[in-house]
Amino acid sequence: MAIKDLPREECYIPGSAACPGCPATMAMRTVFKAIGKNMVMIVPACCTAVIESLHPNTSFDIPTMNIAFEAAAAGASGVEAGLRKQGKTDTTVVAWAGDGGTYDIGIQALSGALERQTNFIYICYNNEIYSNTGIQRSGATPYAAWTTTTVGGKTEFRKEMGEIIMSHHIPYAAQTCVSYPEDLYNKVKKAKSIKGSKYIEIMAPCPPGWRFGMERTVEMGTMAVETGAWALYEYENEVVTFNGKSKLILEGKIKRKPIEDWIKYQGRFRHLFIPKKDVEKIKAIENHIDQKWERYRKCYL
């Protein structure tokens, strides 16, 4: 699958409320290409609910339902049941939520939907913060990152949502990233073809939230993968397969890049470099990533 093979059809319409350089709209365009128009999207409170733009207009050319912050998966369960009752089983139901709505406040509804094997795709675009409300920390915010609620840098490490999802033993789950549109497209396409609960998480570097130049969204995603801060993988029928550069890192065929190559371009980590380099904290980040990959190797190699 090359870029030129991706469908021309667009269900995202230009002129929305998204910031310039937004990873959410970037990812959404490819997701819409993979699923096509026969879908219903459920969006809780998050940037995307704003990106839709203002009543009576919307920038999304597909049926979209907005719902409370904690309720994406519950709302999707209801929509799926309603469509099933009407015999519209060929319509794909997609819950599209942020990391706050997934890792934190929406985890209960999500876990319930996965346990009931609701036939839908849950997509989390992970910008590692509550960006819509002004950059607060979430369970997905990495250690040492500045947010407006962690002014000296976050003191905890982020949760491994992928492993929480896998413990529900759903038929399909995957991690991908905005910088790899073919990978994203293939994963969404595959999820669409499988019955039952599917979960896809997209790494989504956010320029205003992470404090980097708006032209660097793609680079920030690529570096998240190449430094091993983020991993591309698929979980299918209980088997985990790593993809792309992440596969090479897992197999030891390439070394992951130093984390500095990623964080030094992000203002949210500026306090680790200015006025003086915080060698200890940078080392702590590196160690945490190494431990994660050790665990990945033990479990999935």
């Binding site: 319409i13 230009p14 207009n57 919307t58 999304f60």
Partner: peptide, 10 residues
Amino acid sequence: TISYPVKGAM
């Protein structure tokens, strides 16, 4: 409340 798709919603 229902919104309809248009170019340049903002």
